[in-house]
Design a binder for these strands. Sequence first.
DNA 1: ATATAAATTTAAGCCCGCTTAACTAACAAG
DNA 2: CTTGTTAGTTAAGCGGGCTTAAATTTATAT
Lengths: 147, 147
Amino acid sequence: MPKTLQISQTLREWMDAFMHRSMRGWARFAKSTGLSMAQFSVLMQLYHKGACGMSQISERFDVTPAAASQLVEKLVQAGYIERAEDPSDRRAKLLKLSPAGTKLLEEGVSERYRWLDDLVRSLSEEEQVKVGEALEILTRAAQKMES
Amino acid sequence: MPKTLQISQTLREWMDAFMHRSMRGWARFAKSTGLSMAQFSVLMQLYHKGACGMSQISERFDVTPAAASQLVEKLVQAGYIERAEDPSDRRAKLLKLSPAGTKLLEEGVSERYRWLDDLVRSLSEEEQVKVGEALEILTRAAQKMES
DNA sequence: ATATAAATTTAAGCCCGCTTAACTAACAAG
DNA sequence: CTTGTTAGTTAAGCGGGCTTAAATTTATAT
């Protein structure tokens, strides 16, 4: 069998295992905070892509503006999001994570990825170098595929 | 800065990027089939872990038996799951994917991972070898961490 | 100025998944 | 055989997220 196929297969398995672990952890964390997956996703979006307007939420999650508004409302009530008027266009809102929101996510992310850190730390010096190289290759290739 | 930390960071970023892409694809596919995420997850469970009883569904998803029963009922109605009596214990049911269910998931999985295959195929011979090695290292380390 | 478009919000209603509680059927043990 | 336990189902009700439709406010263009 061709080597390419075998690597593809191994990569799939690795990613699958990672997905399962990560998803379970993610769901458990969201549940422990009393947030729904949808609410959590909005916070994550804000965390990774920074402040934005209501319309951006609506577009990114492929829901109506009404749905986005209601979703955000609850997170504002809960104190995780600050909703301010956009000075450059007073129709629009500026949504950003509150300090409490940021704190929440950082705890969640670190919890979710702790095992990855442990994994890397369990590798020998030499293994770490190899893994680092491979990641660089994959990341570069992925970037190239975007265009 | 220590190399270990930097690799850890790169690995996180790679996994994050993968998660986002995969999740979006997964959600889109589930939506296109008219299934909810929860329903899709049950099918995936059956696909990866094979046939099981109602109680196993209930345990794995951490919901009441009632919820599991209702969830499965819809999938039986939709023709994706076959629900039979367990011959060894007539109280219990044996849940397994129907041919239609298997077909559905295999299409979904292949769609979800096509870009990964493309990614691997875009690498040079030498790069593929390096990536293959690294994956082997990671997989072995992950297995060791399970115990 | 006035008409149109855009960014939200609110309200009403639907579907979904979850829970509790009550029920049926089958096994297990005295 | 009776009692208790286990597997699953059904019904009622709750809350969440989504949609459509209508309203509000602000920007834009003629």
